[in-house]
Design a protein around this nucleic acid. Structure first.
Lengths: 144, 144
DNA sequence: ATAATAAAAGATAAATTTGTCTTTTATTCT
DNA sequence: AGAATAAAAGACAAATTTATCTTTTATTAT
């Protein structure tokens, strides 16, 4: 479904959202620990997301990653697109370049509705929304 | 969604189903051309599927791949599992080992229904069913 | 100013996926 | 029996993804 990189990205972003309330910042070390991800690898990912303005960062002591209101309002879809591209949103399940309604691959119509729901899910769930849910303590970002 | 290998596999299997009526056999060359796949690569894939009894083959002149009634009755799910494993069927979208109803990751409940429909689609659509649809000439296995 | 901190950036490496080429084995036909 | 055919198998190579380590840059606090 998602690449491993994208899984790390989503977990990291939800983690940052959750931990960076007020003007708290979260370090790469904390993110790595909090999401069971390889530290240097998740650092690269956050760097990438930071360049793409999906999250903010400050260097130096007390630095780290954080999110502003705008960041929190981003849908999951934005993270997925930033990391895995828009393949899942636009491409044919069988990888056919010109698969379409009028020129469909064999599974096109079968997959259509599923794809629609998948996209809807990613478009409507914002980072902040996941955040609210995590507050209830009923959701987890790593095995325990 | 699916690996490239799995995309080739699905297209190849549908192609074989379609072309191997009666006691026709389909060669690797035909499969490769008919599905726009690298010949030697799709050969490996068919070998694999053949070992796993999802398709049958005979060597030598007039040899090639074909499907019997049982093969045609297999759901898409079997091909996907044979090539990509059952990850898509059993694993957490975020890759968490012990994500479950009682111990869910943040997207577990949002993804649940989509996953169910995806599995249902793969379980209910058999190779033969796709086959019937291709007969109408309204579906395609490669760009044109 | 200097030392400490933490992200950014760069280089490299391991692992996996994707793809190619060659040889071997089984089967058919003459 | 021998030649031709086509899959099976094996070895190898390129590309991509995943992961690690080191150096640099920006910022803060002393």
């Amino acid at each position: 479904m998602f690449s491993k990189t994208c899984e790390y990205a989503i977990k990291a972003m939800i983690f940052v959202a959750q931990k960076s309330r007020g003007d708290q910042r979260v370090s790469i070390k904390e993110i790595a620990k909090g999401t069971d991800a390889p530290e240097h690898f998740v650092a690269k990912i956050m760097q990438d997301l930071s360049r793409k303005k999906l999250v903010h960062s400050v260097k130096g002591p007390n630095g780290g990653f954080y999110m502003d209101a705008h960041d929190l309002n981003r849908p999951l879809a934005d993270i997925v697109k930033a990391i895995d591209g828009d393949k899942m949103f636009v491409s044919c399940v069988l990888g056919l370049k010109n698969c379409s309604e009028k020129n469909p691959c064999p599974v096109h119509h079968e997959y259509k509705e599923i794809k629609k729901n998948l996209i809807k899910m990613m478009d409507t769930n914002t980072i902040g929304k996941f955040n609210d849910k995590l507050d209830t303590g009923k959701f987890f970002l790593k095995n325990h």
